[in-house]
Amino acid sequence: MKRVIPVFLLTVAGLIPVWRYHPSTGSTTTTAQAAEPSAPPSPASSAPVSPASSSSPSSTVASTKVVPGTAVDTVKGVFQVEVTFRGDRIASVRMLQAPHHPQTKWAIPELVTETLKAQSAHIDSVSGATVTSEGYTKSLQAAIDAKGH
């Protein structure tokens, strides 16, 4: 997870100049490969990046433009973002497509930290690392099985 997000951000960062400066004929192949060296060039990567034309890069009018990004094929799957420009500044970036893959989940589950405790308690069964036959004789599970209750 830690690795995927930086790679993805690099990909986005790498694509931004392409969107801005090569609106009709730009190819993202080089950019995508730079961001993800092991990604094979995809057919989608050579497609025109943006159907919109950026006629006035230094425009002072804060017009809003939403540009869908190229679908970038990486070893983790296909990513595609949508960038909203306000004037010539990026207002927001939104994910249009992300692989259904555990490592690309954005919500990192919250883990609670606690101190390790040792206790003896009434239990029906014990979960532990696979016990060997020798280990079993000394295990809690063996005691439970022998006691019958």
Partner: peptide, 22 residues
């Protein structure tokens, strides 16, 4: 386990005769 609730202990990693959670 089927049905329940069953009380399943998690073996303490360093004390074979203890559990660290139930």
């Amino acid at each position: 386990v089927s049905g329940g609730p069953w009380r399943v202990g998690i073996r303490h990693p360093e004390q074979a005769d203890q559990v660290c959670a139930v």
